[in-house]
Design a protein around this nucleic acid. Structure first.
Lengths: 228, 228
DNA sequence: TCTTTTCTGTTGTAAAAACAACCGAATTGT
DNA sequence: ACAATTCGGTTGTTTTTACAACAGAAAAGA
């Protein structure tokens, strides 16, 4: 368990907690380690889980099968990431499979013991609860934003929605995005070439300028950026 | 404050907490009431909030303006619903406006006081923390599911994704959905008539049967529902 | 440096969706 | 019972997208 302290220290759930405190909290939180071989299932659809988990080593796929058996991969989890936290509740079943795509080490924390004040009242327990809350909140915000973009009807509107958000976030009409073209297309769930085409049309119409992943929004229609 | 106890009792955050306990917790959690006139802003884009809020009376719109000033309404909040909880964190700014669309009463809870064990250790504090966690988790799950549907390229795939999920959730190939056609189209972000058209094509091809909001999935390709 | 690979933009075509307009059935209200 | 409204389905047109194939530039690797 000791060797994973550096990884745990870098996770959101233990942000602001020192090495020593993490060690003493591992037992307090009822932490358990488990290793999975490549191809082994960590969670299965329909399963009821009660633990919050962090991937310490390896990588996982979140995948889903539809009624007709078609499989799709929803996302990848890499070391240090927390997962399953939204399902760590008795009355709800996992809706996806989680599968190890290489040998992986996972640490399990009993959700109840995290959420309930422990009897020996360890100092950092409330920090962990707050961290957990903030981590879920952040995931939540990102999901809402993504839906906001995806819900637009046309590729152009999706792009405008996304680029507007980035400009706001970076507080400037000039900004850098964390995606290349293919990644942005995947994020917005559109075809790359069609998106690239649309970006260029928008550039030709004088709406935006860009080079690589650096963008600039133009024509604010007499609006000050601060008003937005 | 007293008159809103019945509403609070029905909220997710106070599930399992009795009337008396709610009253005693209101001060413990630092609750504050505020009334908003029609059109008044509850939260503004860019604002940093520190409270978790519940709408006690009235209704609110969550809306967003893009860089060019186009406004879109992302959702409506009605009495008893919690909101803003994903933004109740110092380092993050509200990304949307929240506006009262009629006279509304809102209760504010200081997030820190909810997440930190209170000194007088009221019995139900940990229940509320758990409730809060479960409520956010549930929102999170719903968002992930929605993204799963929306990320499909065609209307047909979106429908299959959504209907598969419903079948799984209700554990039967026969199930009822909580939407009419327009609502389902809005949920999946597609055009109603196009979706209606696609549904009928799928019915003609023998994939599904439906009447009103009752659906049945057919042709499981030799798959048992339990395997999915 | 030269080769290979990745990234981005471009074009054309076929497929799909949005949009608009309409109709009949069902529902609601009076 | 009647009128008005909502709801779901249908059709045709226009717009948009996905898809495929390709090419030049940039980056990475040998």
């Amino acid at each position: 368990m000791q060797k994973y302290i550096p990884i745990l220290k870098r996770t959101k759930i233990f942000a602001g907690v020192g090495d020593d405190e993490i060690v003493s909290m591992l037992s307090c939180l009822g932490a358990r380690l488990k290793t999975y071989k490549k191809g082994e299932y960590v969670f299965r659809q329909g399963e009821h889980i009660t633990d919050i988990t962090v991937l310490l080593d390896g990588s996982l796929h979140i995948q889903k099968d539809d009624y007709w058996g078609n499989r799709s991969i929803l996302g990848e989890i890499s070391a240090g990431e927390m997962f399953g936290e939204a399902y760590a509740y008795d009355s709800c079943a996992m809706l996806n499979d989680v599968v190890a795509i290489e040998e992986s080490v996972i640490i399990f924390f009993d959700t109840k013991r995290i959420l309930t004040s422990c009897s020996n009242a360890c100092r950092f327990h409330s920090i962990v609860v707050q961290n957990l809350f903030f981590a879920i909140s952040e995931k939540n915000r990102k999901l809402v934003q993504k839906i906001g973009h995806m819900s637009k009807r046309t590729t152009r509107e999706k792009l405008i929605s996304y680029l507007s958000e980035q400009a706001k976030k970076q507080n400037s009409a000039n900004f850098t995005i964390p995606f290349n073209r293919q990644q942005l297309a995947d994020f917005l769930s559109v075809d790359r070439s069609a998106m690239s085409n649309e970006l260029c049309k928008m550039r030709d119409e004088g709406l935006i300028e860009f080079e690589k992943n650096k963008f600039r929004l133009l024509q604010p229609k007499h609006l000050n950026l601060n008003q937005i």
